[in-house]
Write a protein that binds this DNA or RNA. Structure first.
Lengths: 218, 218
DNA sequence: TTTAAATAGTGTCTATCCTACTCTATTATC
DNA sequence: GATAATAGAGTAGGATAGACACTATTTAAA
């Protein structure tokens, strides 16, 4: 590439997305298979270049809709980190990547253009996107513990067992049932609804809803 | 601005810095007075556009040296957040701002081109840079509690009183002396040196050094 | 040389929180 | 009605956090 070009050209800026979702009792990540070099055949995060006068949150939302065929209203995205080193989405241009991550609730899932892989069994991935997914997982662990991210995996009404399973899958760690229930209900201010959910040959589970609170679970 | 331009032009990307420092028993932030419109006369964060094939960490480092006349080796910068909305550093171009923050140790301080203002008494600031400083302060509080950021304000050897003062200034909260000392020494694995520091008409304080550890202080 | 001023330095007790741990309840199916 | 499968609940012991007050050591001034 010629020196004049480098001197006066700005790097391109893109937004990439790490999308998590609960499917088949596992945390999945939504990826796209590259059909061209570089990294042809590998999987990458869905993303999009930031257009002039496009807020980066909007870029993220458009990427979600166009690349993921997902309803942007159903996914709450948060900024993860901006990677500005060896990220060459396209060999022709130097790219800075602003990465957002978010959770797709199970009841909002729809077949689209993304392919979903277990967080714990990722395929061969292009660029440094695998490292980005792992970084997003670390952030997700914290967010699940300290914020309200766990609820975004689930529909509005959920059982405590379902919620506990989210924590266990995200944290990759088994939790004590009684302690979990005591704490989660109190700390997150869960409210038991009158309804219950029959899901197998066993006692039905009460459905809870989440309102809002500020404490932390460990 | 013409539509063709907007359609095919990429936004510019800049790195801005929030630099903290301990001076005169106060946490200060290093700013630059704008000499041109927009926001002429207001203060802004030091920053620099990201050049083609310049890692963003390098952009940050160069900004530190050129705008702040500070030794990049003495300041550990961490990425804060990327602001991609209404940030128009320059009215002519739409700019995305990747913000880094860091702490300048007291013994590395040198007069330069930055002006230092109390974190709690900021001057009139341009763009949304005041909001960014406040956001950085929130992050700093967490980093001081959970990471090793408190030590970066101080020289290698420091007294426990000096360290406690950092926590109090950053957290904007008084701490109990005995509890602080017990916890900080244990949790952060501080080591008492043989030296002590005479600083006034009173008993000298033992100097401590920080090694490394992983626990948390609250 | 005694006194005063100023900060360094130290331990205990109480309340709260975290963790480990096991049995009964309720449903559908055979 | 017996079985299988998950829902649901309480207690005790140990660890941790927070409140709290006095003695030690130095320099300067009287």
């Amino acid at each position: 590439m010629d020196e004049e070009f480098k001197r006066y050209t700005l790097p391109a800026t893109a937004v990439d997305l790490v999308l998590f979702s609960l499917q088949a009792d596992d945390i999945k990540v939504g990826l796209i298979r590259r059909s061209e070099d570089p990294y042809k055949g590998s999987y990458v995060l869905p993303g999009r270049f930031v257009r002039y006068e496009e807020k980066i949150e909007d870029t993220a939302r458009i990427a979600l809709e166009e690349k993921g065929k997902l309803d942007a209203k159903s996914v709450k995205l948060e900024q993860l980190y901006t990677f500005g080193q060896d990220l060459h989405r396209d060999t022709r241009v130097r790219t800075i990547s602003i990465v957002y991550y978010g959770v797709l609730p199970t009841d909002k899932f729809q077949e689209g253009t993304l392919e979903w892989f277990s967080l714990y069994e990722l395929p061969k991935m292009g660029f440094d996107h695998k490292a980005i997914v792992l970084y997003a997982h670390e952030r997700l662990k914290n967010k699940v513990l300290w914020d309200e991210f766990a609820f975004s995996f689930l529909p509005k009404e959920f059982t405590l067992s379902e919620l506990q399973r989210i924590y266990e899958l995200v944290l990759d760690k088994e939790l004590d049932k009684r302690n979990f229930r005591k704490k989660i209900v109190e700390i997150k201010g869960l409210k038991k609804t009158a309804k219950s959910k029959v899901e197998g040959v066993h006692r039905p589970a009460a459905l809870y809803i989440y309102s809002s609170s500020r404490k932390s679970l460990i």
